[in-house]
């Protein structure tokens, strides 16, 4: 698992970590400015970067590296993961378009299948063309059942049917794919709330997980996305995707700090198994080297 994360973040780590170490051992007056650059290029954002720099100004340069790690890890570890039991356990996946929601569901489905769970997918994205087919392909690939629907159908009704199906077929896990659209679209949020309501009526604990999928290449806008979805739905976790490239996903630290929701998994590739549980220490280590 660690290996994969390291592979995935190898490029990021090399650039950030090596540069930081080089910068720090050199002890030149431009030190803080260069650290600032590294932090910004990791997408940590203005606020967090400025906070970190302020902290660093109080300590000698040889402690910089540890302090940066410490600050980032403490933010990421500062939120608790609360898992809820249920049968079926209902997961609702939300996020803006193009972040990799459907793929993430496929991967989490695979993971749950490996644990021997019976998994049902629900294709509640009745908006984007191709969404139904895409999830269906994933269901076949990982051996999950699926409830499909028509384009334009009411996602709440699909969620309702899917829950019934999960119950009757004795499923352990129900993974719900939702329409990805920009978080600024008011109707989208209403639609999400309705899906949640429908499920809560079936079981007060459901959805047991409401997971926001965030594209690791996203910049500061990830914060707006997280805030909007959290405000509307109350998130239980975050999945950060596309971390196998050059993007560093640093914005997630700010997101966690701001909304207090833990990162649960990270996506590190396009394969079925390219999803790993999030570990703050490893993430930061891999990021900074």
């Amino acid at each position: 698992m660690i290996k994969k994360l390291f592979q995935g973040l190898a490029r990021a780590r090399q650039r950030l970590g090596d540069r930081l170490r080089r910068i720090i051992t050199r002890r030149d007056p431009q030190l803080l400015e260069e650290i600032e650059e590294v932090l910004y290029e990791g997408d940590l954002g203005v606020e967090l970067t400025e906070n970190i720099l302020e902290e660093l100004r109080k300590i000698p340069p040889e402690k910089y590296m540890d302090r940066i790690k410490e600050i980032l890890i403490s933010i990421l570890e500062g939120v608790e993961v609360k898992e809820k039991e249920g049968k079926p356990r209902v997961w609702m996946f939300v996020g803006v378009n193009g972040v990799g929601k459907t793929t993430t569901i496929g991967k989490i489905g695979k993971m749950l299948r490996k644990e021997g769970k019976r998994v049902l997918f629900a294709a509640c994205d009745t908006y984007r063309t191709g969404a139904q087919e895409q999830l269906k392909i994933w269901a076949e690939r990982v051996g999950a059942d699926i409830v499909l629907s028509q384009y334009g159908a009411d996602p709440g009704a699909v969620a309702f049917d899917a829950y019934e199906a999960a119950l009757h077929r004795g499923m352990d896990e129900l993974l719900i794919d939702t329409a990805g659209r920009l978080h600024t679209k008011h109707p989208l949020m209403e639609e999400m709330k309705k899906i949640k309501r429908v499920l809560s009526k079936k079981n007060p604990d459901a959805p047991h997980e409401i997971v926001l999928v965030v594209d690791g290449t996203t910049g500061q806008n990830a914060l707006n996305q997280a805030k909007s979805f959290h405000e509307a739905l109350g998130l239980s976790g975050i999945v950060l995707t596309k971390l196998d490239g050059t993007a560093k996903g640093g914005i997630v630290v700010h997101v966690v700090k701001e909304i207090g929701v833990p990162v649960r998994y990270i996506g590190v590739g396009e394969g079925e198994d390219d999803l790993i549980p999030f570990n703050p220490e490893e993430f930061v280590k891999a990021l900074l080297g």
Binding site: Y40, E41, G42, D43, V96, G98, D215, T217, T218, G219, Q220, N221, A222, G245, T246, A247, K248, I251
Partner: peptide, 12 residues
């Protein structure tokens, strides 16, 4: 290019 892209946009 997605307008929401962060610093990675330069690499892409």
């Amino acid at each position: 290019v997605d307008a929401m892209t962060g610093q990675d946009a330069v690499n892409v």
